[in-house]
Structures are given as C-alpha cells and as structure tokens.
C-alpha cells in the first residue's frame, strides 16, 4: 500500500483555513440569538435554530431583493449571450466597413475604470428616468466588451469549413450563427454566462449609487443595509448572508470546471 503523501499535513490545514469563515457563516446562521449574544459567544450551536431564516424570509423585503437580483442577473446574462455572440460572430467572420475601428475602440474601453464613468452614467440614467428602478442596473450591464471579445476569440478559432457549405446553400448569417456555430460554442457561452453572473450578482457599488428605494434593492445592497439596521440580530444577518452567497456558491460547486476555466482564461490570455 502506498503511504499517504506528507503534503496532506500542509494542504489540509491550509484548505481548512480558507473554508473556516464560510463554515462559521453557516453555523452562526442557525444559532439562536441567545447563544450568539452570550459572552463569550458559543462556537458551535447546541441545536439548529432556524429563527434567523424565519425572521429574514418573513421580513417582506428579503424575498423581494432576491427576486430583484435574479431579474437583473438573468437579463444581464441573457443579453450578454445574445449581443456578445452576435457581435463576436460579426467581428470574427463578416467583412464590413469600419469593423476594425469599431472592434479596436470597443476593446480600448476595457481599460476605463468604473469610477471615471459612474457620475455621468448616473446622470444619463437620470435623464432616461431609470434611476431608482431595476432598469438603471440592467441597461449598463446588457453587454460588456469582454463578452464580445471572448466570443470573437472563440469563433476565430473555429474552422471555417463548417459554415462555408451553409453559405453556399444560401443560408443567412443569423441562421448559420444559431444553427451551426452556437451549438459548438458551449465553452464560450458558459464562460460569458459565468463571468456576467458573477459580476452582476456580486455588484454593490452601482446599485448603491443607482437605487434609493428599499423595495428596489438587490441582495448585496439589501444585506448591507439590513446589517446596519439589525446589528444586534447577528443570526438573522448571517441567515440573510447565506441567502446572498448561496446562489453563487451552488453555481460554483455545480459548474466548478466552467468557473475555473473562465476565470483562469481571463488571466492567461490577459
């Protein structure tokens, strides 16, 4: 029998160190307030108390924030897949006047930091009457240059032969994209979906600027204000925190390969 590697002595405690805060998040979300408010506070709950979750889910706003976050993320992901693949395909395959300039300018915008655009974007959204609505969160995240760029890179790497037969048959570009190219583009589709979901679900800065009314908060903004108002009810705050983190955590655990490939690919090629 092979002796277990000595590396476990290093790696197991290290992995535990990274996991511990999240374990503590879960544990404290099922503690009773009495146990949390004791000094020194309990480290492990003596029994599972769902009072925090009942409070948070009974609080009419938390479910609302969850729905708001889901709407914003779902629209952003769908729009990035549609607009990103359309744009990426045209930049990869169709020769048209001004394409190089348009692509170059779009990629150049990737270096613009958000702080530089946030005040004018706020003013634009105000002009459009979108401030304090979910529309203000959705419009700026409909398509990112990164989504267009990732699709373009993927389509450039596909062999042209597959499409050429369809071009001769007189198929339109849209038909070719939808029925021939996209079915092959699962890696690109999942990368763009993952990156867009992470960015929109986790965003706090822009919702903080664009939304005032609590019924229009996203989960991140709602959780932050909820903590400010209930800072002695830690069990409820942690239950709300679990609800905020869970969708991303579940998505990550279910599609770990896609997550890691997506994030690593932005690094290697960057």
């Amino acid at each position: 029998m092979k002796r277990p590697s000595a590396w476990h002595l290093v790696l197991a405690p290290l992995a535990l160190l990274f996991a511990l805060p999240l374990v503590w998040l879960l544990l404290s979300s099922v503690m009773s307030n009495a146990e949390i408010n004791r000094f020194p506070p309990a480290l492990i709950p003596s029994r599972i108390d769902l009072g925090g979750y009942r409070y948070v889910l009974g609080n009419a706003l938390f479910p609302r924030w969850l729905v708001n976050s889901m709407i914003v993320s779902a629209v952003a992901v769908t729009a990035n897949l549609v607009l990103g693949s359309l744009g990426g395909y045209a930049f990869a395959r169709i020769r048209f006047a001004g394409s190089k300039v348009a692509l170059g300018m779009m990629l150049a915008t990737m270096v613009i930091p958000f702080q530089l655009t946030m005040i004018p974007t706020f003013l634009v959204m105000k002009q459009l009457g979108l401030i304090d609505t979910l529309g203000a969160l959705i419009v700026p995240s409909l398509v990112t240059p990164l989504a267009v760029f990732l699709f373009r890179q993927f389509f450039v790497s596909l062999p042209r032969e597959l499409e050429e037969a369809a071009v001769i048959d007189g198929c339109g570009r849209l038909r070719i994209l939808v029925s021939i190219v996209l079915p092959l583009a699962r890696p690109a589709l999942s990368t763009v979906a993952v990156l867009t979901f992470l960015a929109t679900w986790n965003d706090l800065t822009w919702p903080l600027i664009a939304i005032n009314t609590d019924t229009n908060y996203t989960l991140q903004l709602g959780l932050t204000t909820f903590q400010g108002q209930h800072h002695t009810q830690w069990a409820a705050v942690m239950a709300g925190n679990v609800i905020t983190v869970l969708p991303v955590l579940l998505g990550f655990l279910l599609a770990q390969k896609a997550f890691i490939r997506s994030l690593a690919s932005t690094g290697i090629k960057g």
Partner: peptide, 27 residues
C-alpha cells in the same frame, strides 16, 4: 455584408461606446 455586419455589432457598439466614451468625456 456591411449591413449584416453592422446589424450584428450595432447594439453592442452603441451600448458600449455610448456608456463609456460619452461618460469619459463628460467626466
């Protein structure tokens, strides 16, 4: 082809440049 190309990239180019170049100058 130019018409198709611009129809495909138009929405993205408009949104991305509109919400970056305009704000950068405005800022």
């Amino acid at each position: 082809d130019s018409a198709t190309g611009w129809a495909f990239v138009g929405p993205s180019v408009l949104l991305i440049l509109g919400l970056s170049v305009v704000p950068v100058v405005w800022s």
